[in-house]
Design a protein around this nucleic acid. Structure first.
Length: 116
DNA sequence: GGAATGACATTTA
DNA sequence: CTAAATGCCATTC
């Protein structure tokens, strides 16, 4: 068995569906997979794919706060999302000037019919 | 198989 | 909005 589990493979496939300029949340992924946001975060943490293939940096918390992957590299990651048109305030919250409904990606489809 | 861990969410104050 | 406490589930030890 590879280091990539069945479950995390689904997570990566869903994550790869997030288009540029939009973001999603751990909750949405978890809801689609009928699991908990915790488990989704675990898989994304171990994401073996390049960000161009699985844009895990486009996944934020459901309270519109940046995920922990920003940690000490918050500046770098924030810039990365700003390049896609998604801005955050100094505290790491999604900019209030943005329409959250518009930039949150929800249209996931079944990973079974999708290949990375 | 059991305990600890973590890129989270929800509720309450 | 902030902060603290509790629940959550797959992975790892």
């Amino acid at each position: 068995m590879t280091s990539i589990t069945n479950f995390s493979e689904k997570v990566y496939k869903l994550c790869s569906q997030i288009p540029k300029g939009k973001v999603s949340t751990y909750k949405l992924l978890a809801d689609f997979l009928h699991t908990s946001p915790r488990a989704v975060g675990q898989s994304l943490k171990k994401n073996p794919f390049p960000s161009s293939l699985v844009p895990c940096h486009r996944v934020i918390q459901s309270n519109y706060f940046l995920g922990g992957f920003f940690g000490k590299e918050i500046e770098l990651k924030k810039v990365k999302l700003e390049q896609e048109g998604i801005y955050f305030d100094n505290k790491g919250y999604l900019s209030k000037n943005l329409s959250k409904k518009e930039i949150i990606f929800r249209n996931f489809f079944d990973p079974k019919e999708f290949a990375i």
